[in-house]
């Protein structure tokens, strides 16, 4: 299996604080990789570095061998990384369908003039986009809510819609930032099924941040534990979760 993401010595400081210190990771194709750690460990900062929101002070990021370090968010998305956010960021005043169609923005293109003059191409491509978007919504069981405003969806479905939107950009690597945050056990179970679909049917490589240990131990194959910005432990899920250092970081010394 080829390596999708390779990160070497990633480091960033904010003022005097080393938010991420010498972070390394290698994610293989089709893998479900977990990034865990206590609050403030720097997990979301890693995501922001990977997606170009922050530029790293040191280190290199390779996506399928291509160096994407220091590129803009838009370029990185075009290169093949899509993400969801810890605090849901949907296009609230657009319909559910349009949220996904916005994600298809770069996959289906026609010129502004075509759009304004409504040339035949407009209708053809819009139809294709709608079909593709509806297919995606079906996977997430959102097809019945397609015409709703995104803000009117219940919380769990908003989370799913965000994943659907990210998936619409057809990424090589999908970053999920605490997808189960704020979900009840039922919703978490549903989410786990959805993520399994992403992995098995869509063959996506996924890196996810999560606090819900049931979810992490249930679906993640490999784990990296961050603490105070640096890697505490890395390896297979079962090994990592039984590591005394990790238990200490989570539960404290006794």
């Amino acid at each position: 299996m080829s390596t999708v993401l390779e990160v070497n010595n990633l480091t960033i400081s904010f003022g005097g604080l080393r938010a991420v210190d010498d972070f390394n990771v290698k994610i293989k194709e089709g893998e479900l990789y977990g990034l865990i750690g206590p609050n403030g460990a720097g997990k979301t900062t890693v995501f922001n570095l990977l997606t170009g929101v922050y530029k790293p002070d040191e280190g290199k990021i390779f996506l399928e061998g291509e160096n994407i370090t220091g590129k803009s968010t838009v370029e990185i998305n075009k290169a093949g990384i899509a993400r969801t956010f810890q605090n849901i960021r949907l296009f609230k005043n657009l319909s559910v369908l349009d949220n996904v169609k916005a994600g298809l923005h770069n996959s289906f293109t026609y010129s502004t003039i075509t759009g304004i003059l409504r040339l035949p191409k407009y209708f053809n491509i819009e139809k294709e986009m709608t079909e593709k978007a509806m297919d995606l919504l079906k996977v997430f069981d959102l097809d019945n809510e397609a015409s709703y405003l995104a803000s009117n969806l219940p919380y769990g479905k908003q989370r799913k819609l965000e994943i659907a939107r990210a998936l619409a950009t057809d990424p090589k690597l999908l970053l999920l930032d605490e997808p189960a945050a704020g979900m009840n056990p039922n919703e978490t179970q549903e989410l786990m099924d959805t993520i399994t679909i992403l992995k098995n049917d869509f063959k996506k490589t996924i890196l996810l941040i999560e606090h819900d240990m049931k979810l992490v131990s249930g679906i993640c194959e490999e784990l990296t534990v961050l603490n105070f910005g640096s890697v505490l432990c890395q390896g297979r899920t079962s090994d990592v979760l039984n590591d005394p250092e990790v238990i200490k970081a989570y539960l404290g010394d006794d």
Binding site: T73, A102, A166, A168
Partner: peptide
Amino acid sequence: RDNTIAAESIGI
């Protein structure tokens, strides 16, 4: 308009 950061993240 609705969310600049999210729009950027999907390549707009």
